[in-house]
Design a protein around this nucleic acid. Structure first.
Lengths: 208, 208
DNA sequence: GCCGCTCCTATACCATAGGTACAGTTGTAC
DNA sequence: GTACAACTGTACCTATGGTATAGGAGCGGC
């Protein structure tokens, strides 16, 4: 039997990241101790520092995973929206609705946004981690900016708006919705806010 | 001379709070050590624990001060808006513009929202502190909800919206704008987001 | 004028957590 | 069967939050 009662060789790093992500989203990064992580996974402190040179490196790995995952989800949702409509505006509105539904269906409370959570503890992290969080925001900006440019090319907005800050509004409303939802312990807040953003886009570009 | 070269009697607590607020908004609560605070104010550790039973009590005092201050500022701005127009919608839109201008004029970057910052480090804080942060959000909700009810009573929104989540959008957009602004190191983001919220309100209730 | 109270200082000590150093062990691929 | 990746074990250091306890300095009230 190659299988042991504990861990397969090489499995530790992966399980560390899984447990760390759950714990950090639940308790916050500062409140997550290395000791509890290694106890949970069943490895030693030496093993932790073998995989990650310090706690910062763990944060970096976490945020990288997180950003990849969330980009994949958004790609999928908005691709589906565009499948269902040829119009860039209508496809986007469908995508936003799917996004709100996805957020609403998430297992109790939303996962919280790792990137946003790290911004608030800036000095705990190295410049690399902060740069990664910023890169995440830049990707969101680029994604939504491109879409709004395509929409505005077809028909101008009802009132003049700046496309870049409108794109940023997606990021802001999601971060703000997560924060408020966490604070109020109400998971319905985030999807509701996304739908308000959707309303704003409709009122700007659609015939309402 | 009753004045010493260092501190007047009873001044320590006040100066501790001032320094703590500046430091926490700059570096985050977790990254702010008691040692650096007492060194900055020029008192001993014993003095700190005389005034605050633990770091949590400091957080509590900080957030109480912060919430009072921000309520006073909003009261003033929207009162001024109502002075300039008798219509609840127009008064509100003026108030929002004043708010955006106030945020834009703040000394380099915005102060960051203490309440939001504390939400992300939940487990670092006691239930009391979390309840205070939640109370802050509840006050914002009540404030904006009352206003939107007054506005909707005069004329219905162009598309049906839930008033409570619309009120929450103010909180969400400000929190999200602060977070994004911090992440991108761009102080212009927050006021721009407030103006987008204002646009949304205009499109909902005004003739545009 | 001294009593008692608030507002501190001084000293010592403790536990937890992040982190370092380094020597040794084991599974697996080649 | 050996070399390397992936660990274990032990020991130790530092910063930080926090506790305990004794005592001093100014000040208002009686």
């Amino acid at each position: 039997m190659t299988e042991t009662t504990t861990l397969r060789r090489g499995e530790a790093r992966e399980r560390l990241l899984d447990l760390a992500e759950r714990t950090v989203l639940d308790k916050g990064f500062g409140a997550t101790s290395i000791d509890e992580l290694i106890a949970g996974v069943g490895i030693t402190k030496s093993a932790f520092f073998y995989h990650f040179k310090d706690k910062n490196a763990l944060a970096q790995a976490l945020i990288e995973r997180y950003l990849e995952n969330d980009a994949a989800i958004l790609d999928q949702l908005f691709a589906r929206g565009d499948e269902l409509s040829d119009d860039p505006l209508q496809g986007f509105l469908i995508g936003l609705k799917l996004f709100a539904e996805t957020l609403a269906d998430l297992p109790q409370a939303h996962p919280g946004c790792l990137a946003a959570s790290f911004v608030y503890q800036e000095q705990l992290f190295s410049a690399d981690v902060r740069a990664l969080a910023r890169a995440g925001a830049v990707r969101w900006r680029a994604r939504f900016r491109a879409r709004f440019e395509a929409i505005a090319a077809r028909r101008p907005p009802r009132i003049p708006v700046d496309i870049e800050t409108l794109a940023d509004m997606a990021t802001a409303i999601v971060d703000g919705g997560i924060t408020l939802g966490k604070s109020m312990k109400d998971p319905s807040i985030l999807p509701a806010q996304v739908l308000h953003f959707r309303n704003y886009v409709r009122l700007l570009f659609d015939d309402v």
